[in-house]
């Protein structure tokens, strides 16, 4: 009988015991796959973009005192001991703005319960879901008038429209293409749109986009979220505030690239 190499080759049938010679190969293959898998996991996980360092104190409720301003967007003006006023942007639960919860308190001195969102100087506050989350302030100090946004220089700025709730700590990444769907939902749900401008250095600045009716420029922004855009408008500031506002009108936003 001729001896053919065919005969020497082990033959595998799934429901029979696996031939000895193949057992070694199977073990080698499992080991190799495990190692390659780990290598790929290390490379891809390490190779993720470094996330921003903002913090969302998820699950930890705090309370804040200050004066509510409903326009141009819901915010709480808090005062440091030295008397400097800082705006804290107020946002709602999930992907909603805080308008409904704070609209009855315009100009009032209040205490609000909710969850802090912080990134550097920027402060936001997610108002708690309960009906009594906003209450008149227990300390009866007369509320100082909220600062005025001043200036109005015409500017042309390039950047990306973000939803500040996700961007400053709730989601990482809270910007860019993969986050576009979420930012669209958030801004559509009433979270005020912001323009994020990156300067040549690692420096960056933020502009709350405000429409002609002195409310967040929701509808003007929606078609352009998370894309590179150029926006024309009038910029107003408050000394010491971590963001400015940019007043825009129809056709103020255009895509670049």
């Amino acid at each position: 009988m001729s001896s053919s190499p065919e005969r020497l080759r082990p033959f595998f049938v799934g429901y029979l015991p696996i031939p000895k010679t193949l057992r070694g190969f199977a073990a080698f293959l499992s080991l190799a796959l495990g190692l390659v898998g780990m290598l790929i996991a290390v490379g891809l996980s390490h190779g993720q973009n470094a996330p921003r360092t903002g913090v969302f104190e998820f699950g930890r409720e705090s309370s804040l005192e200050g004066t509510i301003a409903v326009t141009p967007a819901p915010m709480l003006w808090t005062r440091s001991e030295s008397g400097v006023a800082t705006p804290v942007l107020l946002v709602g639960q999930w992907k909603f703005g805080a308008d409904d919860v704070v609209s009855a308190f315009d100009g009032a001195s209040v205490e609000i319960r909710g969850t802090r969102i912080m990134d550097g100087d920027m402060q936001l506050f997610e108002v708690a879901g309960s009906t009594d989350a906003v209450r008149p302030s227990p300390s009866p100090a007369p509320s100082a008038p909220t600062p005025e946004w001043t200036g109005g220089e015409h500017s042309v700025l390039r950047g990306e429209i973000i939803d500040p709730k996700c961007f400053f700590g709730v989601m990482k990444p809270g910007y860019g293409k993969v986050h576009k769907g979420c930012a669209t939902r958030c801004i559509s749900g009433g979270i005020p749109p912001m323009l994020w401008v990156r300067h040549a250095t690692s420096h960056e600045s933020f502009y709350l986009l405000v429409g002609p009716d002195d409310t967040p420029a929701r509808d003007l922004s929606l078609p352009f979220i998370a894309e590179p855009v150029e926006i024309q408008g009038r910029v107003q500031t408050v000394e010491g505030a971590p963001f400015s506002i940019m007043r825009i009108s129809d056709n103020a936003i255009r895509r670049i690239r």
Binding site: G34, M38, I40, A41, Q48, A50, P51, K172, P173
Partner: peptide, 30 residues
């Protein structure tokens, strides 16, 4: 087992290299 090894490695490296990551994003990517 390969899935578990892969996921454990991805999550561990994410926690070490990017401690500020959020859990949901790490899971979506894993």
């Amino acid at each position: 087992s390969l899935l578990v090894i892969y996921a454990a490695t991805f999550v561990a490296v994410a926690l070490l290299a990017h401690p500020e990551s959020t859990a949901e994003t790490v899971m979506i990517r894993t």
